[in-house]
Amino acid sequence: MMFAAHFISKIDENMSVLKMPIYESGYWDLKPDEAECLKGGRAYFHQTKQDSSYIGGKVLDWRKEETDAAHSERIVFTFEADFDGRGKPWRGRDHSMAWWSGLVSD
């Protein structure tokens, strides 16, 4: 089973191009086992839960990154953006404080 996840990420916020169409996005407060479940799956990035995804694609890899934030160990995803990553509706957790969908089947 492949998994997907949706994230709230303002355009250009913690998003960088490594080499088109390969991007990195972080810094996410996920557990390593959640990140590992997304490897080979899909990630979608939205401005808000009400907006369709503005970018998304296949998750190629992830790594841990130390930050100054609470729960300082954060996850950075490397993903290959594709056309199918755009225009997807939010799926998963949708309460007001949800910044990610949790793992959803793809």
Rank of each mutant, 00 (worst) to 15 (best):
25 S>V: 10
57 G>S: 11
43 A>D: 00
86 R>I: 13
99 W>N: 11
100 W>D: 12
36 E>C: 02
86 R>H: 12
43 A>S: 06
35 A>G: 01
60 L>E: 09
7 F>M: 06
5 A>P: 02
69 A>H: 07
96 S>Q: 12
49 K>M: 15
20 M>F: 15
90 W>V: 11
87 G>M: 11
46 H>R: 11
3 F>P: 03
90 W>K: 08
45 F>C: 04
74 R>T: 10
72 S>C: 14
42 R>Q: 05
37 C>G: 00
4 A>W: 00
69 A>K: 06
32 P>L: 06
33 D>F: 04
85 G>H: 04
53 S>Y: 10
53 S>F: 08
70 A>D: 12
73 E>A: 05
67 T>N: 02
36 E>H: 04
29 D>Y: 05
32 P>A: 07
56 G>L: 01
106 D>S: 09
9 S>Y: 02
23 Y>H: 08
74 R>F: 08
85 G>F: 00
95 H>L: 09
34 E>A: 04
65 E>T: 15
57 G>I: 04
58 K>G: 00
6 H>C: 09
10 K>C: 06
14 N>K: 15
85 G>S: 08
94 D>I: 07
3 F>Q: 11
99 W>S: 08
100 W>N: 13
10 K>R: 09
24 E>M: 14
19 K>L: 07
58 K>H: 01
106 D>V: 10
30 L>G: 03
56 G>D: 08
